[in-house]
Design a binder for these strands. Structure first.
Lengths: 232, 232
DNA sequence: GTATTATTGTAACAAAATGAGACAATAGTT
DNA sequence: AACTATTGTCTCATTTTGTTACAATAATAC
């Protein structure tokens, strides 16, 4: 980044992303850790003056995951005065040997737009950015302490995701193209945080008329092989 | 406004509000018209550097309606590049004899956070601001053409309001404290845009255990008087 | 007073959706 | 060939919702 870049971005506006993936049994999100600070945070970024908000988020999430065509939903905009913390940002800059004059604009108050992404866990190639040590998957019930209001963001993202689960088709973004009914049920259970009845779930899904049944999946187990399905 | 105020506001960020009221039969929203321009718009404003987003909206809506303790919900943040239109803003400034140098910051690209408000129609005392001719109620199905993306905002606000109708209690904000079952049903019908079955609606509402039944309301009509209810 | 009218509150039954359990089919193992 | 665990579907019970019916009024008309 160069000094001129300050003017390229909308001032005091950022975005943060809650990137959901599903490893087959648990719902996970991506969390990064800033160099030498112990600060864990959601992947975020800024919006260029000549770039739409959606594109800014899309590009940012793509860079970090190596994926294109990411399913994104805006879930809330965080605008309280107390959410920004200049001391935390200062430490992040200092530990990364960045000039706090040049990057002083990062210390101000930010309104941040939250997006969640649903991605296929297995296709991801994680790429830390310049400021961060690492970016890793964490189970949503085993998150490290997140800086500032990022924990609140995760909770809100999950709340909105749960609400959208009934209205929008979610599974297709977290699963491979072909999946078993059990896998689909596990996605629902992971998002809702509760067990569902197998027979009721299957009846419901089939009655929605959104699935195509394919060949069976032989898993080498000593029981009946399940069918594979895909979304219409 | 003075020149110094430019620095008091977050640049390139605005809010817009969809203020819903219910006149007894129709759902209405507040729309203002800018002086000498023919431009109809949603009430909006900017966010001061030392003010939370929620407070900015709360204050703005309060000033225009004369109400306190307004029920507000954030519904979406609009961040496309094409949504801002400097020609329209310029005309608004010119027709109000405002210097386009001093107020040039209003011509730029804005990310706008949408909130909807639910208020008791009857308590409102409307106050146009300095830039606008008038502020008036319009039925949601008889809106004038709105400038920029404000029509899209109304549609999105209504969509989110409908979704929230099942989850959150909405009637209390659009009705007087005590109301009849019929009035409550009319609010639901106005929001959902469809007729509901009287008996089913009544049974549902009573079974939710959220209403208190009070005395009857004698309307001077030749039929059984309905009970008044309030929310618990 | 008494019949009339329109609306309200609730009951009764039908239809649909969901919960819960049972069971046959079956892919691999013993 | 018997056994095991899981899947797909069926059945019946329970709950929720749709629909109709009807008694209980508050004012009006006579």
């Amino acid at each position: 980044m160069s000094t001129s870049e300050k003017r390229d971005y909308i001032q005091n506006v950022s975005y943060d992303s809650v990137i959901f993936g599903f490893n087959g049994s648990q719902l996970k999100i991506l969390v990064l850790e800033y160099h030498n600070t112990g600060y864990f945070a959601l992947p975020g970024g800024f919006v260029k003056m000549d770039e739409s908000l959606d594109d800014a988020v899309k590009n940012g999430v793509s860079q970090r995951t190596g994926l294109k065509d990411i399913y994104l939903e805006q879930f809330y905009t965080f605008g309280s005065l107390t959410r920004s913390d200049s001391a935390i940002m200062k430490k992040i800059l200092t530990e990364n040997n960045l000039d706090t004059n040049e990057y002083g604009w990062m210390l101000g108050r930010f309104i941040s737009i939250g997006y969640y992404a649903l991605i296929n866990y297995e296709n991801v190639k994680l790429k830390p950015d310049e400021l961060s040590d690492s970016i890793n998957w964490y189970s949503i019930d085993e998150l490290p302490p997140l800086m500032m209001d990022h924990r609140e963001m995760v909770d809100k993202a999950l709340e909105v995701l749960r609400q959208n689960l009934e209205r929008k088709l979610v599974g297709m973004n977290l699963l491979p193209v072909k999946f078993t009914m059990k896998q689909l049920q596990q996605v629902y259970e992971a998002i809702l945080g509760e067990k569902l009845r197998r027979t009721t779930f299957q009846r419901k899904m089939l009655s929605l008329d959104i699935l195509v049944r394919h060949e069976k999946l032989f898993q080498g187990k000593a029981h009946k092989a399940p069918y594979l399905y895909s979304f219409k």
